[in-house]
Design a protein around this nucleic acid. Structure first.
Lengths: 245, 245
DNA sequence: CGACTTATTGAAGGTCTTCAACGCGTGTGG
DNA sequence: CCACACGCGTTGAAGACCTTCAATAAGTCG
C-alpha cells in the first residue's frame, strides 16, 4: 500500500474514533439526523460504540434502563419472555433503528444480536438532558415512537387475526420493504434470522413456519435460494397477506 | 331553583363553553397537563368538544389525519379491519387517553364510541405548531407514545404466545389496573365492552371468550355479577396470566 | 469426515373455531 | 298485558388449523 493511502486510512480511522457521529454512515437513517453538524459533537460526547457477536445480549428485560441504543450495522432481535420460557419477538432492529423508547425505569424487553453487529449506546440521562437544547431531536424521537407504534399495531392485527400463510406472506413483504428503504435488495431478500426467530415473531412454531414456506414454494409464491435468500412473487403475496393494497 | 343557584349554574356552563381546557376535569390525567394555567387558552383555542353516541364513528381508517383526539368521558374502541371484515381491536381508550399519535398522513385505524362519550378534537397542524412553543407538551406526547408502545408490546406477547385462559386473565387484570388509576373500582370491575369486542381485542372468538369466562368462574377465579361487573380473585389470576409478578 | 445445529417432513393430538341451538333480558306493537 | 322480535351471551358438537412429538435430511464448522 502506498504511504499516502496508508496515511489517509489511518486518519480516517482516527476520525471515526474521535468523532463517531460526524462520520457515522447511518446517521441519515436515524434520529441523529436531527442534530446539525456544528453541534454533532455534543451528541458524540455521550455515545459509546459497541460491537456485538451473534447471540450476544445487549439488553436484559428488567434491567434498569440507563441507556438508549442505535443500531449502526448488523441486525438485532428485541424480545420478551414469559416465566416458562415462551418467547415473543417484538421486532427485528436494523441499521438506523433506535431501541429504548418504550421504556420506564426498567427495560420491558431483552435484545440480542442476530449477526455481528455494531450499536451506539447513549447515556439515557445525558441524552434526555441534551433534548432540552435540541427540540428537533425530541420531535424526531416522538416521530420514531409514533412509527413504531403504527408498526406494532399492524403486528397486533397479524398476531390476532391472520392465518399462518398470511403471517408469513406479510412478514416477507415487510422484510422486502425494509430492505428497499435501507438500500438493499428488495427482491431476492436475505433472511438474517432462522426459522425459530421467525416463529417467535409470528406467533407460530418452527414447524409451522417451515411447512408454510414449502407450501408457498409449491404454490409458486416464493423460491428458496441458497444462503437464506428468498425470491418473492410480490403481487401474489400481497393478495395472500390479507392486507389492503 | 333559587335565582342565585340558577345564576351560578349558568355561569359555570358559560365557563365550560368558553374555557373548555381550563375547566377540564380530565386535564390532570392527560397530556394537556403539560400546559400551565396562564397559557391554557392557547390550547383551548384549537379544541372542539364532541359528543358521541354508542357505536358512533370518530375515526375511519384511511382518512387523512387532520385531528388528534383526547377522551374526556366514556370509552372508545380503536381497531383495524382486514378487507374481508376480520377485526382487531388495538386498544380501548378511556378518559385522559390521547388518540392519533400512531399516524402518518392517514389514520391507520378506526375508532368508535362504546358508550356515550365526549372527546376533545384538536386540529393537528395547529397543535403541532403549538408544540414548538411548548416543548413540555412535545415531551409529554413522546412519553405518551412510549407508554403506548410498551402496552402494545405486552399485547403482542399476549396475542402471539398466550393461551385463551391467560389472555382473559391478563385482560381482566389490565382493566382492573386501569380502573384503579382512573379512580374507579379496581375490584368488582365494570366491563364497558361486550364479548365480541373482548374477542376482537384478545384475538379469539366470542364463543371462546364466553367459555373462558365460565371456566374461570367454575375455577373460582372470578364472579360474574349483574350489570357486566366482574369480581376478581387477583392473586390467582396473576398466576394464571402467565406474566411476571 | 463427523459432530452439531438447523430445517424439513410425517403422524397424532389439542386448542380454538365454526356452525348451530337455546336462554335471557329488553323493547315494541298488537 | 302479552306476544314476538331482536340483541347478546351461553352451551354443545363437529371440524380445522396449528402444535407437539418424533424421525429424517440438509447445512455448518471443527
Amino acid at each position: 500500500m502506498p504511504e499516502l493511502e496508508h496515511k489517509k486510512a489511518a486518519e480516517s480511522l482516527v476520525a471515526r474514533l474521535m468523532e463517531p457521529c460526524a462520520h457515522c454512515e447511518t446517521r441519515h437513517l436515524s434520529v441523529c439526523r436531527a442534530i446539525e453538524d456544528p453541534y454533532i459533537d455534543q451528541l458524540a460526547s455521550l455515545v459509546t460504540s459497541i460491537d456485538l457477536t451473534p447471540r450476544e445480549s445487549m439488553i436484559a428485560e428488567g434491567d434498569s434502563a440507563r441507556h438508549y441504543f442505535n443500531i449502526t450495522s448488523g441486525a438485532v432481535k428485541v424480545f420478551k419472555l414469559l416465566p416458562d420460557g415462551r418467547q415473543q419477538i417484538i421486532g427485528f432492529s436494523l441499521p438506523g433503528d433506535f431501541i429504548g423508547l418504550a421504556v420506564k425505569d426498567a427495560y420491558g424487553y431483552s435484545a440480542e444480536a442476530l449477526v455481528p453487529s455494531r450499536v451506539c449506546r447513549f447515556d439515557r440521562n445525558k441524552l434526555e438532558g441534551l433534548l432540552v437544547r435540541f427540540p428537533k431531536m425530541e420531535h424526531e424521537l416522538r416521530n420514531q415512537a409514533s412509527d413504531e407504534l403504527a408498526i406494532a399495531q399492524d403486528q397486533m392485527m397479524l398476531l390476532g387475526r391472520k392465518t399462518a400463510k398470511e403471517r408469513v406472506a406479510s412478514f416477507l413483504l415487510q422484510l422486502s420493504a425494509r430492505a428497499k428503504r435501507a438500500g438493499l435488495s428488495p427482491n431476492p431478500i436475505h433472511l438474517a434470522m432462522g426459522r425459530a426467530d421467525i416463529a417467535d415473531f409470528l406467533g407460530l412454531t418452527i414447524e409451522t413456519v417451515s411447512r408454510t414456506f414449502t407450501s408457498l414454494k409449491k404454490d409458486g409464491m416464493i423460491d428458496l435460494e441458497p444462503g437464506n435468500h428468498v425470491r418473492l412473487r410480490v403481487p401474489r403475496l400481497q393478495e395472500l397477506s390479507g392486507d389492503w393494497y
